[in-house]
Computed example of a mutant assay.
Amino acid sequence: MRLRSLLAATATMGAALALSGPAPAQPSAQSSAPAAVQSPAALPGAEAMVAHRAAYRLTFDKARDNSDVSRAEGVMLFEVLDACDGWASRQRLTMRLQDRDGRAIETASDYSTFESKDGRRLRFSLTQMTQGAVSNRISGEATLQPDGSGVATYEQPSTRTEALPAGTLLPMAHTIRAIAAGRAAERILNVPLMDGTSEDGAQDSTTILSQWNKEAETKPRFPLLAQQESGRMRIAFFGKDNNGGGASSPDYEVGLRYFANGVADELNMDFGEFAVNGRLETLESVPGGC
C-alpha cells in the first residue's frame, strides 16, 4: 500500500518540518556574555512565513480500478515554529486503510525537522509504524552549498551518504520558492527536493502553478488567513528510477492551495493506488522568533 509514499507526500505539503527536541537555545542578553555569532541571512521571502499549528482531517477521495485500497481516512497534526535562525516543526499522521476484503491497516508516523533559514541545512527524523509496531526509521542531516549541491548524511536505517545535485531545495525553501513563482505568474517549477523522507536523498519534483489570486478572502475561515493572497499548485514527485520526470508517471502527487504566509489548505494527495482529500479543521498562530 506504498506506506512510505503516503508519509513522504504529506510531509512535503507544508512548510519545513523539524528536528526532534527543543529549539536552539538563544544567547544571553547580559553584556558580559560573549558576542553571538551572526546567523546566516534568511532566504528572501522567509519573513512572510508564519509559525502556526494546524490539524487536517483526511477523507477518502478515490481509488484506481486495480487498487487493493477501498477506503482511507485519518488525521494530520502539523506545527511549524520560528526558532530564530531556523524553522522547527513536527508532523504526526495517523491513517486507517481498508482493502477490498474489508481488512484494515492502521498506520502512523512522526516526522520532524529543523531547517536553517538560509536554506542550507536540514536535520530530519522520521518514525513510521504499522499496526502499532515500528516499521521504518530514517534520520540524518543534509547540507547544501550555494549552488544547491551537497550531501545527505544518514544515521538510520544505516550510516551512509547520498550526494545531492545542484539546485536541490529543502522543504521550507521549496515552499518559499513555489509561492514566489506563483506570485510572479510562473507556471512550472522543476527542482530536486530533499525532505528526509526517503533513504535515497533528493527526489525530482515538478510543481505546476495555477494563476495567483491577488484578492484576499474577505471572510476567511481562520483569522490567520485574513488579508492573505493565495495560489493553487500541484506537486509531482519522481523516484530515482523515474529518470527525473519527463513522460514518466510520478510516484505521488500533492495538490493544495498555499496562502502567502505559507499556510496550506484544500489538500488532495494522490498516491497512485488511491487519493485522499485534506480539510483544514483548526489553525492557530504560534509565538516565536528572536
Score class of each variant (00 low, 15 high):
residue 76 M to H: 10
residue 212 W to R: 02
residue 59 T to K: 00
residue 201 G to C: 05
residue 22 P to Y: 03
residue 272 G to K: 12
residue 125 S to G: 12
residue 248 S to P: 11
residue 202 A to P: 06
residue 105 I to G: 06
residue 266 E to I: 00
residue 141 E to K: 13
residue 166 A to L: 09
residue 171 P to R: 01
residue 148 G to T: 06
residue 93 L to D: 01
residue 72 A to I: 02
residue 191 V to Q: 14
residue 46 A to M: 09
residue 289 G to Q: 13
residue 91 Q to I: 07
residue 51 A to T: 09
residue 278 G to P: 15
residue 88 A to S: 07
residue 168 T to H: 00
residue 162 E to D: 15
residue 97 L to N: 13
residue 128 Q to L: 05
residue 260 A to D: 12
residue 240 K to T: 12
residue 79 E to V: 06
residue 177 R to W: 14
residue 10 T to Y: 15
residue 122 L to F: 15
residue 283 L to N: 01
residue 98 Q to K: 13
residue 74 G to Y: 00
residue 8 A to K: 05
residue 140 G to N: 11
residue 226 A to D: 04
residue 124 F to I: 10
residue 229 E to D: 07
residue 80 V to I: 05
residue 83 A to L: 10
residue 133 A to D: 06
residue 163 A to E: 14
residue 110 D to A: 01
residue 19 L to M: 04
residue 68 D to S: 08
residue 145 Q to R: 06
residue 194 M to A: 10
residue 133 A to C: 03
residue 148 G to H: 01
residue 71 R to G: 07
residue 199 E to N: 12
residue 273 E to Q: 14
residue 151 V to I: 14
residue 183 R to G: 11
residue 200 D to W: 05
residue 65 D to Y: 00
residue 156 Q to P: 07
residue 85 D to I: 14
residue 164 L to F: 11
residue 231 G to C: 08
residue 170 L to Y: 04
residue 88 A to H: 09
residue 283 L to G: 01
residue 94 T to V: 13
residue 142 A to D: 09
residue 206 T to G: 01
residue 162 E to F: 12
residue 281 E to L: 10
residue 122 L to Q: 11
residue 277 N to R: 03
residue 208 I to Q: 13
residue 286 V to F: 09
residue 80 V to S: 05
residue 275 A to P: 11
residue 267 L to M: 12
residue 286 V to Q: 07
residue 160 R to N: 14
residue 269 M to H: 00
residue 152 A to G: 15
residue 143 T to L: 13
residue 90 R to Y: 00
residue 110 D to N: 02
residue 265 D to Y: 01
residue 280 L to P: 04
residue 288 G to L: 11
residue 137 R to K: 02
residue 154 Y to D: 06
residue 45 G to Q: 13
residue 4 R to H: 03
residue 144 L to M: 13
residue 22 P to M: 06
residue 53 R to Y: 09
residue 74 G to F: 02
residue 34 P to G: 00
residue 54 A to C: 07
residue 166 A to M: 08
residue 245 G to T: 02
residue 261 N to I: 00
residue 87 W to G: 01
residue 82 D to N: 02
residue 212 W to D: 14
residue 41 A to Q: 08
residue 278 G to V: 14
residue 137 R to G: 03
residue 204 D to T: 13
residue 8 A to E: 15
residue 1 M to N: 03
residue 242 N to H: 11
residue 110 D to L: 01
residue 75 V to K: 00
residue 18 A to Y: 04
residue 142 A to T: 13
residue 204 D to K: 09
residue 4 R to F: 06
residue 28 S to M: 03
residue 155 E to W: 04
residue 108 A to R: 08
residue 31 S to F: 05
residue 100 R to L: 07
residue 278 G to Y: 13
residue 173 A to G: 06
residue 17 L to H: 08
residue 227 Q to R: 07
residue 106 E to Q: 12
residue 237 F to W: 15
residue 152 A to R: 15
residue 18 A to V: 10
residue 22 P to R: 02
residue 38 Q to T: 14
residue 86 G to Y: 02
residue 268 N to A: 08
residue 289 G to E: 11
residue 114 F to N: 02
residue 142 A to H: 07
residue 69 V to M: 06
residue 136 N to D: 15
residue 261 N to Y: 04
residue 101 D to E: 04
residue 60 F to E: 01
residue 284 E to K: 05
residue 16 A to T: 11
residue 21 G to T: 04
residue 138 I to L: 10
residue 227 Q to D: 15
residue 287 P to V: 03
residue 73 E to R: 14
residue 10 T to W: 15
residue 105 I to K: 11
residue 25 A to T: 07
residue 225 L to R: 00
residue 110 D to E: 04
residue 48 A to D: 09
residue 222 F to V: 03
residue 52 H to R: 04
residue 183 R to E: 13
residue 79 E to C: 06
